[in-house]
Design a protein around this nucleic acid. Sequence first.
DNA 1: CTCATCTTCGCAATCGATTGCACAGAAAGG
DNA 2: CCTTTCTGTGCAATCGATTGCGAAGATGAG
Lengths: 350, 350
Amino acid sequence: MRQKRITLKDIARETGVHVSTVSRALDPVERKSITEEVASRIQAAADALGYRPNRIAAGLRTNRTMTVGVMIPDITNVIFPPILRGIESVLEPLGYASIIVNTDSERDRETRLVDVLRDRGVDGIIHAAVLRSDPSIARAAAEGLPVVTLNRKVENSQIPYIINDEDAGICEMLRHLRDLGHRDIAHVAGPQDLSTGQLRLAAFRNAAATLSLDFDPALVATARRFDEKEGARCIRELLASGRRFTAALCANDRLALGAIDELREHGIDCPREISVTGFNDMPFLELIRPRLTTVRILQHSAGQTAATVLLKLMNGDKAEDIPMETILPVEIVVRESTARVRQDDEDRPA
Amino acid sequence: MRQKRITLKDIARETGVHVSTVSRALDPVERKSITEEVASRIQAAADALGYRPNRIAAGLRTNRTMTVGVMIPDITNVIFPPILRGIESVLEPLGYASIIVNTDSERDRETRLVDVLRDRGVDGIIHAAVLRSDPSIARAAAEGLPVVTLNRKVENSQIPYIINDEDAGICEMLRHLRDLGHRDIAHVAGPQDLSTGQLRLAAFRNAAATLSLDFDPALVATARRFDEKEGARCIRELLASGRRFTAALCANDRLALGAIDELREHGIDCPREISVTGFNDMPFLELIRPRLTTVRILQHSAGQTAATVLLKLMNGDKAEDIPMETILPVEIVVRESTARVRQDDEDRPA
DNA sequence: CTCATCTTCGCAATCGATTGCACAGAAAGG
DNA sequence: CCTTTCTGTGCAATCGATTGCGAAGATGAG
């Protein structure tokens, strides 16, 4: 049979004091307003009975559930689990638990899930979904719910955001390719309805300008999803266009892996004939040949940072203590999928 | 400013009825005990005001939170996210949310997290952790909390469990190797304090007997963790032992991948000289050469099944309607890492 | 037309913890 | 020794929804 829980009332009966006294004695901050002797007697009784506070009841009264909501597109996407561990690493020791929901990047799901989280009384939300617009989360934030976004910013809002320095990552990567002698560099862009896809394309364009490289719209192929199949399709498209290119900078690792596979199908060797780069540095990359040159993102610290900012928000810290924008550094990791452009390619006039 | 929530009381005031009437009108099952006209008036008011029930308050009264706890070793392990999606796919449509915790396979963490979940009043727990013993979860179940375990059973308990037919998987794989002419087959075993590691070693031994193959303890190397590095180390160990083997059946994919890499380091080709097999069929395997022959586990359906059984438990279904044991089928997927044993090897007398 | 039966709804208790306020007794000050 | 100020504890309301019970009012049977 289901054991009935020990409540404050039980302890009160046991120790002969009022439940409010018990409540105070067990609260670390209120405890000092209670005679030490009484407090420790209560503490002892609580321990003896195996008292465990009922967070539901406390939550009803205090309106704090010590729970946060985390919204991500899809947990099976390998970049998210490390983020979640990062979040957990700062929140869990403080007694917070998190409810994780997958939006599958569908707008109506996203809207519904925001409500689901609010109904459950979460104290705050970390929003790592990637749709480029979503009124529901903005509304929630406007109504006072602590919210931070990860990997993207919500326009026209006061929502703090944490992003990776993707601009710098793309730029460094492009510089790396340029330094290897590449001039005709294609971009396999991600879906343009996802913030990551759009941001990285913009970054690519900017980086080209910064490095005084030509930006040729014909050398941009846009994927419909972030997967290998689309990476392959984009490369086919680029190849079919007849435009010459010696390198392809892809908007993420999976696109790059698909691209390399497809090149191989066409008898084109990476990196000897065409260099390919990825983005994210997902796990297991070391095991796939050629080992992919990519941009490493600090997923774990991104999660930690998001959690830290959310905490400040939930604590009601002063606005000036809350960083509205956090840009995390990225680094390029050079492996085997990029190589110096071939002499005959390099010599041939553009 | 934080908007104050609409409560039943607000609707009651608005419609001129008692809050209990409102409560009933909004409850799909109680609704029929209310005049249709009143009910729809209340419904309209609720919609107009944008009423959202406070699950915390309901939870306090009913002692049901519509929340389940899910315990896994580590979310960054690629086999767990599909399980979680499977769980979600059955629970979420019914209004349940899940709190996911990572145990890191540490006993004290596991114990503590069970309490964390209970304090939050979860209605049930799906326990996919892998330690071979853990009194805390058994105690929770004994006290009446609905619990099901995934991937392992808890001895001496009435806890329903869902497992994959690993015995069959190992046996089929061994048969596959035997059919390819292999006779000297090594086993790279997983950690023996984890149920998966232990189960698969036992399965290997049984399968050898079933197939009348020799089981040579000297051809078993035991990994301390389920990762590539340990797979490599085990292969080194086997190679160093001087015992001859033409195939290595590994307890999971990562061990297998490490093994193949290490063989390559030693100038040994897989599959030409030594065949290697994995277990789990994790994502991205298709991208790694040689493509690994492995055992596919239905992670998603395992999650679904666990959730379904947990639901029955939480609904208080009759004991005979609750399957205590569910064994999910597995299938071997033959790719490139296994090949027929070489003639000279085959001919050479054992 | 009366009494029994049903429907429909209101009343109030309840879940367990928190917290503003009141009050009693002790310590302090004059 | 009496007032004033603390200090420690009790009292009771509160958070919002649920639900057993009872009381009107409606309906029906006789």
